[in-house]
Amino acid sequence: MALLSKKDANLILDPLADNNPITIQVLGICSALAITAELKASVVMALSVLFVLGAGNVVISLLRNVIPSKIRIIVQLVVVATLVIIVDQVLKAFAYELSKTLSVFVGLIITNCIIMGRFEAFALGNGPWKSFLDGIGNALGYGIILVIIGFFRELLGSGTLFGFPVLGDPVTKTGLYALGYENNGFMIIPPAALIVVGIVIWVQRSRNRTLIEEA
């Protein structure tokens, strides 16, 4: 790593696993669950958060010496809201169908706790480059979980990935369906997302037992 020092690299790598925003810090759950029935929506959501968090962290970090601490929440909200409006308008212009699927959840990136959490915990106390790396790292950690959930929910629920049938055709009974396999409609309904996250947490904590909570 010539480009990044070891410390900087840790800023990106840490949130991917051992300090993951969703499974460890429990931030930003709201949007993570609602839009993961399809892999495509999950990927777009992850990219939107990547943009908002990366850019927002840099802006806040540049402004950190100017913002009076009393009104910092509202300043942060305005910065996020502006970035989210950009994302929303771009999605509406170039991916209208997808923006219908995501509906209000693009707007809810504003109140995504990951973003406010990183602003408060990191960008207000660190320089722009570090904040940028931190933002990218946390957004990637968030994105990874989203993609994992979206992958399993779409594969098991509809037998497709990104809308392409990968397990054969359920109507004409080809591929796996010829052997009597059925789609699990349960994975499509909203509560299944919660159970999948629960299982992801279970697997992660079994592999790394230091993360287990007391009580």
Binding site: T23, V26, I189, P190, P191, A192, A193, L194, I195, V197, G198, I199, I201, W202, V203, Q204, R205, S206, R209, I212, E213, E214, A215
Partner: peptide, 28 residues
Amino acid sequence: IRYSNVPAPLRGLGITFIITGLMGIGFQ
């Protein structure tokens, strides 16, 4: 649930997610 013997890796957050999921199915 504090008095129940939940598998260690599921304790706290994990089991809360799964319970919420089950409640969600009920609400459906």
